[in-house]
Write a protein that binds this DNA or RNA. Sequence first.
DNA 1: CGGATGGTTGATAGTCATCAAGATGGGTGG
DNA 2: CCACCCATCTTGATGACTATCAACCATCCG
Lengths: 238, 238
Amino acid sequence: MSQSDSHIVSCSNCGLNAICLPYSLSHSEMDIVDAKIKRTKPLQKNGSLFETGQTFTSLFAVRAGAVKTYNTDNKGNEQVIGFYLPGELIGLDAIESGQYHNTAKALETSSLCEIPFDQITELSQKISNLQIHMYRLLSKEIREDQELQLLLGKKTAEERIASFLFNLSQRYSARHLSATTFRLPMVRTDIANYLGLAVETTSRIFTRLQQQNILKADGKEVEILDHPKLCQMAHCEN
Amino acid sequence: MSQSDSHIVSCSNCGLNAICLPYSLSHSEMDIVDAKIKRTKPLQKNGSLFETGQTFTSLFAVRAGAVKTYNTDNKGNEQVIGFYLPGELIGLDAIESGQYHNTAKALETSSLCEIPFDQITELSQKISNLQIHMYRLLSKEIREDQELQLLLGKKTAEERIASFLFNLSQRYSARHLSATTFRLPMVRTDIANYLGLAVETTSRIFTRLQQQNILKADGKEVEILDHPKLCQMAHCEN
DNA sequence: CGGATGGTTGATAGTCATCAAGATGGGTGG
DNA sequence: CCACCCATCTTGATGACTATCAACCATCCG
């Protein structure tokens, strides 16, 4: 295992990794950044990290568990905005206005790092690389949002579910976890909501994918049996 | 007119305004940034600013005219990603990967400013405020994308068109143009594509809005007759 | 054990896409 | 300057996809 790999798998600095990966800082730079990151206490399932309207102070990186962000309109309807897995960063949309625009809630007992934003601006003034990393992180989020835009605007229900599963697979894989067998941290309702579908439709498509031997699903446990076909269904370029 | 207003309406530094507004830099700081901005020659209608896959070098600010970004899948289908009006910034999604992820094309003869990104990173290292402005700009884009996500995931065709018109109205208004009477720079096909609808549906809803005396539309010229009702239709919070 | 939450399946209805065709309008060439 | 053509826009008829309503099953947990 190389030295940089040891940084990647070390659980103590997930927040650091979330910020710095996949763009490498020097180790001394990483240590400076690392020192600014707070370890927050674990968040219970359904516990909220922040709520809509609350003053923005920090970004949060998921160390373990999973988080969803959502907001509720005046009629009480929920709109799921995103799911965050270990190594991913929450709160980038709140920088501009200085307040969180949605509520972040733990889907299961989770562990998080808090990264005060003023520390980032201060540090990125000194560490040139960190500033560029931040630009890239924000830019990446924009690009991913645009892919979701395509999904919601053009794809059928089946394509949406396939894309969703494929996307999760890639994210787990990127974190050195199995790309084919994993546990969905969110309930079907959340998936449906996120993808702009009804729960029933989502459920039906899960069933259909199993009949086609593309997927094996037992509740939240899923196994992708035919990765190429799923990819094809999702209309991935790769 | 205050000095800062004179900066706002000055046409020579729209690129500067796109970057710096609505967060004020000092005038001396603005001048430093301004010096780095290139004025590109006008772009003819249907002329492309950059294309998918091209190496990312610069952000572009619209000075006059209008630009759309879109990409085409392997089957040749177009997906419109966004529309850019005077004062708005194009290319933020390309920072991460170093290449443009979509094609930008002028909807009408347009004038643009080119802002080399390496100049921004260099300058924002010196000018602390500029760095924060960049974070905010990127963050704002993320937040706006999330609103589009809600639109595409949850809203009906009527709500989408209403939201779209309301949004344009706000953007024109923010640039000191009429919030009620303006010219749509894009064709119906583009609007439909952007909103995840069929052209025919879009056309029908334009007709319906006129029957309800909410809108007056003559081709691309539109006049919002009942702003409150349009807002209500769009389910705006404000 | 019983209620609650989440998941699945079936029947029906509604919104919107699709197909088709006509209307409008701007631009170009004769 | 007019006529023609192509792109765009509009309107109508039909059908498909998916939401909705309803019922049932499974699982978890106090």
